[in-house]
């Protein structure tokens, strides 16, 4: 017996296995970042003094990064839509752009980190920088994870397009759902850490 519903949808649930799986994974991710955001609220509300993010962090750089990530979500959707219309060339283009956007985001983040560390604003400096590095670092790891997945589907994983196009399209949808989540986390991080 083969495992059913790996590609097609189960009639009574309307889902294929991996789609349900990724949503459950995201539910656990919500709890992970939710716990960290809650910790942030608790630490800040209990602190005697807490700096505004813009006093220490660069808002223009973060705003630029926000734009980059949101654009990458758009290109991610476009890559999936291209596969739906059977245009593999366009898929390659949009997926490449998505990966490029991830690289730009990480590069900007790297320069931000470098500047803080050179100024002695390391995690041990105070609780603000502790939570800043923890949250953005964990988010950064998620970006890197997503780029590894996307890179695989851009390169060697794309061979599946010729053998099982429907399954490959599903995989891009799954990767996209994850990528949007990573994007969404940043959209929460940006105001909380930089603007408030």
């Amino acid at each position: 017996m083969e495992i059913p519903y790996t590609v097609t949808e189960r009639p009574d649930t309307g889902l294929y296995n991996a789609k349900l799986g990724v949503w459950l994974f995201l539910a656990s991710e919500v709890m992970l970042f939710g716990a960290l955001f809650s910790s942030y609220v608790l630490l800040r509300s209990g602190a005697e003094e807490w700096p505004h993010g813009w006093q220490h962090l660069s808002v223009p750089l973060a705003a630029f990064n926000t734009l980059v990530l949101i654009s990458s979500s758009v290109t991610m959707v476009m890559s999936w839509a291209s596969l739906k219309t059977k245009d593999f060339g366009k898929y390659r283009l949009y997926m490449g752009l998505t990966i490029l956007a991830g690289l730009i985001f990480l590069a900007v983040k790297f320069f931000e980190y470098r500047e803080h560390i050179l100024m002695g604003e390391v995690p041990a400096h105070d609780t603000f920088f502790a939570i800043y590095f923890t949250l953005t670092g964990l988010h950064g790891l998620h970006v890197i994870g997503g780029m590894i997945v996307n890179g695989y589907f851009f390169g060697p994983g794309a061979r599946m397009w010729s053998s099982e196009p429907e399954r490959f399209t599903n995989r891009i949808e799954i990767a996209g759902v994850y990528w949007h989540f990573v994007d969404l986390v940043w959209i929460f991080l940006f105001p909380i850490l930089y603007l408030l």
Partner: peptide, 18 residues
């Protein structure tokens, strides 16, 4: 996941001295 978050923060406390 919340324990994972807590474990990450305790690791930060021990390793990065937060």
């Amino acid at each position: 996941p919340p324990l994972e978050a807590a474990a990450i923060m305790q690791l930060m406390d021990r390793v990065a001295h937060t």
